[in-house]
Design a protein around this nucleic acid. Structure first.
Length: 232
DNA sequence: CGATCCTATCGGAAGACACT
DNA sequence: AGTGTCTTCCGATAGGATCG
């Protein structure tokens, strides 16, 4: 039996949800969020914002993901894989991403190296959660080929930079955040952030197809209404 | 009521960046 | 080089929420 996640909290779930959404969805610093809330008469410190997103981020992400997996808002027809450099305290790390062909971010994973072992771990993690895709699109990094040989689905790999824009586009929000934060401090917080941000991106990503304004507004309201139910 | 949990906060640390 | 201003991170703890 799961206990009430808001137990002992002195602030209402509504405000906590709003705060967490502001911080993760938009490129704002902890203090930016503090000041924005202050403008609305809500008095908390930036440390509280940090505390809340660390506590509730994984929780919200989990329930968004669960819902999407159950309703299959993703497609495993083709996955696009990509990795991007992220500097943590001066050291290079790699953030791997799997994106489906509609732009849904499936998995985000941080590693220290960019070798076969890392690619393998990442692929296994994604497939455990979503099953096997029919096609996998990657860039030319040899680690993918090696990893896929080991898994046994080498045949469905396609390579090509232009094919892989889908995955590369999804790194943009992270880059913006990175700039605001002046780099991430620890692997743990990057992993947490990337995973959570992917979930939120999927949840609020309303322009996967071209909507008319009315449809867009309906969809946005629906997304917000669902958000307000999280962990309720 | 007192005991116990644990949120929310505080002050300081350390790093990145821009500027002089 | 130093200074100022921004960022997140961390250990300690006051005091509010909850339970028996």
């Amino acid at each position: 039996m799961m206990r009430n996640p808001f137990k002992y909290f002195k602030t209402s779930p509504e405000i906590i949800r709003l705060t967490v959404m502001m911080y993760v969805r938009f490129p704002l610093s902890l203090r930016n969020v503090e000041d924005l809330l202050h403008e609305r008469g809500i008095d908390i410190t930036h440390e509280t914002v940090r505390f809340w997103w660390n506590r509730f981020g994984p929780l919200f992400a989990k329930s968004i993901r669960k819902r999407r997996v159950e309703n299959r808002f993703y497609s495993n027809w083709a996955w696009h894989l990509d990795e991007v450099f992220v500097r943590i305290n001066g050291e290079l790390h790699y953030l791997w991403r799997a994106v489906d062909h509609e732009g849904e971010v499936l998995e985000a994973y941080v590693t220290k190296r960019r070798d076969r072992k890392a690619a393998l771990k990442f692929l296994r993690k994604a497939m455990k959660r979503y099953g096997r895709p029919e096609a996998i699109v990657t860039d030319k990094l040899p680690s993918y080929k090696a990893a896929m040989r080991e898994i046994g689905n080498k045949d469905c790999q396609e390579t090509g930079r232009w094919l892989n824009n889908r995955a590369e586009n999804s790194h943009q929000p992270l880059r913006r955040r990175e700039k605001v934060m002046s780099r991430f401090r620890s692997m743990r917080s990057l992993q947490k952030f990337a995973a959570f941000q992917s979930s939120i991106h999927n949840h609020f990503n309303l322009e996967r197809h071209f909507y008319r304004r009315e449809e867009f507004k309906e969809n946005r309201s629906a997304a917000l209404a669902e958000w307000r139910q999280l962990a309720a």
